[in-house]
Design a protein around this nucleic acid. Sequence first.
DNA 1: CTTATTGCTTACCTTTAGGAAAGTAACTTT
DNA 2: AAAGTTACTTTCCTAAAGGTAAGCAATAAG
Lengths: 129, 129
Amino acid sequence: MISIKFGDEKLCREARLALRDAIELLGGKWKICILQHLEFGTKRFKDLQEKVVGISPKVLAKELLELEQNLLITRTVNNTRPVTVSYSLTPHAYEAQAVYNALLKFGTQQRARVKAQLSHKSSSAERNV
Amino acid sequence: MISIKFGDEKLCREARLALRDAIELLGGKWKICILQHLEFGTKRFKDLQEKVVGISPKVLAKELLELEQNLLITRTVNNTRPVTVSYSLTPHAYEAQAVYNALLKFGTQQRARVKAQLSHKSSSAERNV
DNA sequence: CTTATTGCTTACCTTTAGGAAAGTAACTTT
DNA sequence: AAAGTTACTTTCCTAAAGGTAAGCAATAAG
């Protein structure tokens, strides 16, 4: 088990701040999802609105702005008949890839576990009828 | 760059659900922080309240309950004069370790980047005076 | 002139997260 | 009997996240 040590049980200040920053930036319902979709290549606003199922234009615009301000994506206005805007990942965004992978792995294990627990519970509930 | 493939740009349903579950369970202001503190060993409610700076007993109780229900921690009532309650990680919790590490790494890089950007901006702002 | 498309913005509202402060239950110490 | 400790719970409140619906600007096609 590899574990990062911070002296005597004390998370140093920088580490705590870094952790909070990361959670704030990538947390919430949509961020990781948006980044993941952009990983397949540049996407227009409309594309994202369709791919990221359930997101509203308002929220999408907000999330994209935050990601742009944090240098994870680039916004480009294209010279097309109805204006289109493209969003693509910056190299920095690929650093978030590890977070995505870890979350996906953890989430998958977690789902399997909870599913197993539920089926166990329902079978013991049957016995209680 | 290792990237998990989901066929033709389509996140399969299970993967999307797993991702959401993980974000819901580990997201928010306190969860990762609490797990990290428990990694140094069993802690009582009071200990956690002191170590996790700024958390209120109400929120701590809520977070601990959620973690327990998701099988990441164990709650034990001790036979002490004023009752004490111990919380410790289950083996499953160690699977969240990778998420923590990835977040910490990402957050650290992110902070460095944003810091650099700010100092650049302020120097160009000086030129605009 | 009307309608469509793209990329938003605005206004309004509901839900959720989380903070502050006080209280409670069980037990011990003084 | 009063006060302290631990582990909460309860109530009240605010701020932020997020949803719904509509509107708007620019342009083009019918």
